[in-house]
Nucleic acid binder design. Structure first.
Lengths: 119, 119
DNA sequence: ACGCACCGCTAGATATAGTTAGCAGTCTCG
DNA sequence: CGAGACTGCTAACTATATCTAGCGGTGCGT
């Protein structure tokens, strides 16, 4: 396989460029709004660099786009394994309404259920 | 304001460390799964570095977490909208590994935790 | 023809992301 | 008491993200 990342970096760059042109902004204008240098933005648009999360978000804001849009374009949400329906454990772990101890306890209960069902 | 990014980098690191520990993984194990070096993962967890999108996604995959979760934690969605907590309850209800009674019991425990935290 | 204000891009420097090698501590087994 | 297999961490290096300075082109008013 020929580096699937490069393809994403390319696609992201082209996407940004198109969005910028649709917004009628010059490279320098968008660069200033996003607080990055204009040559760097140029390189990003041409797929020469993968911007950091910070820069990605700044660009999204400057373009008035939701940050997730750029992220999706950057390949963040795509082809990773899709275990969506069975994701109880990750949901518990990521739940901000629970403390670490509560997560542990809840996961322990959950696992014991699953284990007992597999017998 | 004293660099709001550093706070996010810190929070992201701590979040990853907690998730790793909940998943019962050593630093080296997670590092290998995410295909980053273990010292680097150590530094990320301690907030010394802001990982790139690529690394962030790899870590999310390795932890079995949806990539958006880490992204939200990384401050990607911060200022405008707040991160939507991802739904633990639907995940439990949709889990085919649990019986109806087990779901009820687990949900009861979960709700009692959340309720006690809101007091 | 000028000047000049913009456009996007290149080159070379600096800052930070990410690496490999190795250290000190803890635990277990003989 | 070692020996070996873990744990997380430090140090020093390389790779890449990002900056500053400056180039050549295009269009417009004089």
């Amino acid at each position: 396989m020929t580096d699937p990342w490069q393809a994403h970096v390319d696609a992201l760059g082209q996407f940004i460029r198109v969005q910028r042109q649709l917004a009628q902004l010059s490279l320098r204008e968008l660069a200033e709004r996003a607080r990055v240098s204009n040559p760097y933005l140029s390189q990003i648009e041409r797929g020469l660099h993968e911007p950091s999360v910070r820069v990605l978000k700044a660009i999204a804001n400057a373009l008035g786009l939701p940050a997730e849009t750029l992220l999706a374009e950057a390949g963040l949400l795509e082809d990773d394994d899709e275990a969506a329906p069975l994701a109880t454990e990750p949901a518990i772990r990521a739940d901000v309404a629970l403390s670490a101890e509560q997560k542990d306890a809840l996961l322990a209960v959950y696992r014991s259920y699953v284990a007992s069902n597999q017998r």
